[in-house]
C-alpha cells in the first residue's frame, strides 16, 4: 500500500507533517479527497476546514485560503500532499474567546461603515475579511 505524506505549512511554521490515510478539503472547483496514489495535482484551497485522516483519528485545520500540490511516484509507492496557506491553524489551537471578540469587532466595524454608502472602501474590505476569518475559526473550533 502506498503511503500518503501530508504537510501543512504556513510561512511562519510547518503546522503539521505526517503520514495519513486521506486529506479532505475544498478547492474553487469543489470538495476533493486525496488518497494515496492520487495523480499529480496543483490547485487552490478556498477558506474552510481541511481534514486529515490518520491512523490515530482525524486532525482538522482552519485554512484561510491557500494552495496544494500532490506529487506521486507509483513506482516508488509514495504520494506527498503539501498544503500552503498564508494563515492556518489547527482547530484544537483556536482561541474561541479571541475569535468571538474579533468577530464582534468586525461586525461593529461593518455596522459603522454600512452607514456610509460605499461598501468597497479598504476599511470595509478589511472588516469583511476579518469577519470571514473569525467565522471560519468559530465554525472550525465548534465543529
Amino acid at each position: 500500500m502506498a503511503t500518503l505524506k501530508v504537510e501543512i505549512v504556513t510561512p511562519e511554521a510547518a503546522l503539521w507533517v505526517g503520514e495519513a490515510q486521506a486529506l479532505i478539503a475544498r478547492s474553487s472547483d469543489g470538495d476533493f479527497t486525496i488518497l494515496p496514489e492520487h495523480t499529480a495535482t496543483v490547485g487552490d484551497i478556498v477558506p474552510g476546514i481541511v481534514r486529515v485522516e490518520t491512523s490515530e483519528g482525524e486532525v482538522a485545520f482552519a485554512v484561510h485560503g491557500g494552495y496544494f500540490q500532490v506529487e506521486t511516484s507509483l513506482s516508488e509507492g509514495w504520494t506527498n500532499v503539501t498544503v500552503l496557506a498564508g494563515v492556518a491553524e489547527k482547530t484544537t489551537d483556536i482561541d474561541v474567546a479571541r475569535a468571538e471578540a474579533s468577530k464582534g469587532r468586525a461586525e461593529a466595524a461593518l455596522g459603522a461603515s454600512a452607514r456610509g454608502e460605499s461598501d468597497d472602501t479598504p476599511a470595509h474590505l478589511v472588516a469583511q475579511a476579518a469577519l470571514e476569518r473569525a467565522e471560519l475559526r468559530l465554525r472550525a473550533a465548534t465543529r
Binding site: S27, D29, A40, T41, V42, G43, D44, T72, S73, L74
Partner: peptide, 12 residues
C-alpha cells in the same frame, strides 16, 4: 530531482 510520472492536473 524527483521524477514525477505522467502529467499534472490543475484545479482550477
Amino acid at each position: 530531482p524527483k521524477k514525477l510520472e505522467g502529467y499534472t492536473e490543475f484545479e482550477p
